[in-house]
Write a protein that binds this DNA or RNA. Structure first.
Length: 270
DNA sequence: CTTGGGACCTGGCTGC
DNA sequence: TGCAGCCAGGTCCCAA
């Protein structure tokens, strides 16, 4: 599933290739993906706007245009492909953004959970997100401030986009394993040493994943169709039935807040 | 404040 | 072989 490293990889690929391009048309094959405005207004407003910049905020991809900001969230199965406009449509293409150079951005989304906005004020969509974990402002102290205010399982805290932006199920599990912290431990009960380790683990896990082009578990692909390789470095995430690479114990999977959580009961014991 | 459930979706998997 | 039913998971929303 696309989390921060995957969206960052997509942004890095698209940025030098589509900045300066102008939208000449939009094909909405699943109009319900457009959350704002109406599909009709979305089309008419987007056409003729030029892409000035692309950035990422949490798991959201933001295309800054002349007037508006086009925002995409890939949710679980969303993929963006940059291909010639003559490319064929596979059955899961939901939206085609036609550009003025005979290429198009194809939004493929098997499960139709992805979402699209076109807004003047991007804070309407991303305004409530927590801090970006890979910025200088995200210090161990900043993480500590968030942690000490919540009496919820630390796994749930890491996945809450309004507390920290961009971490999802996979990277939360990886960071907690790297920091040797029980995912069920209440955030407020983490020691300063654990908070420090968790901060370092978050930064390391995300940075490493970006360096490897994100994790191609499930459907994730780069805009050129290539795959990421970060999943081959996973220690626990999606390692069902495997042994802990550190101690050899069996990796367990338990639900926390309804999400499958992989961890090593020995390395991450209380 | 915290938790739990359902809703949104489809394809892959399980079990009969 | 075929089919029903379950499951995954990001986010939002409602209820307890």
């Amino acid at each position: 599933m696309p989390e921060l490293p995957e969206v960052e990889t997509i942004k890095n690929y698209l940025l030098p290739r589509v900045v300066g391009r102008c939208f000449t048309g939009v094909t909405l094959l699943w109009p319900r993906a457009v959350r704002y405005p109406s599909p009709e207004e979305f089309r008419s407003r987007l056409i003729r706007q030029t892409i000035k910049d692309i950035s990422r905020r949490g798991k959201y991809l933001l295309f800054r245009l002349d007037r508006d900001t086009l925002i995409l969230h890939l949710r679980m199965t969303g993929v963006l492909l940059l291909q010639p406009s003559s490319a064929g449509l596979d059955p899961h293409i939901r939206t085609v953004f036609h550009l003025d150079n005979e290429t198009s951005i194809y939004f493929r989304d098997q499960r139709k959970f992805g979402a699209i906005w076109l807004v003047e004020d991007e804070t309407e969509v991303v305004g409530k997100l927590g801090p970006e974990p890979l910025t200088p402002a995200f210090t161990p102290e900043a993480l500590g401030n968030i942690i000490c205010q919540h009496n919820i399982p630390v796994k749930a805290l890491l996945c809450d986009q309004n507390l920290i932006a961009g971490i999802g199920n996979m990277y939360a599990d990886e960071a907690l394993f790297a920091a040797r912290i029980d995912p069920l431990k209440k955030a407020r009960e983490l020691s300063p040493q654990e908070t420090e380790r968790l901060h370092r683990a978050i930064c390391k896990v995300l940075t490493n994943a970006i360096e490897h082009g994100g994790a191609s578990v499930d459907t994730y692909q780069h805009p050129d169709g290539g795959l990421g390789s970060a999943q081959s470095f996973f220690q626990v995430a999606h390692c069902r039935g495997e042994q802990c690479p550190v101690c050899g114990a069996m990796i367990e999977r338990i639900p926390i807040r309804g999400r499958g959580t992989y961890f090593c009961p020995r390395c991450q014991g209380t």
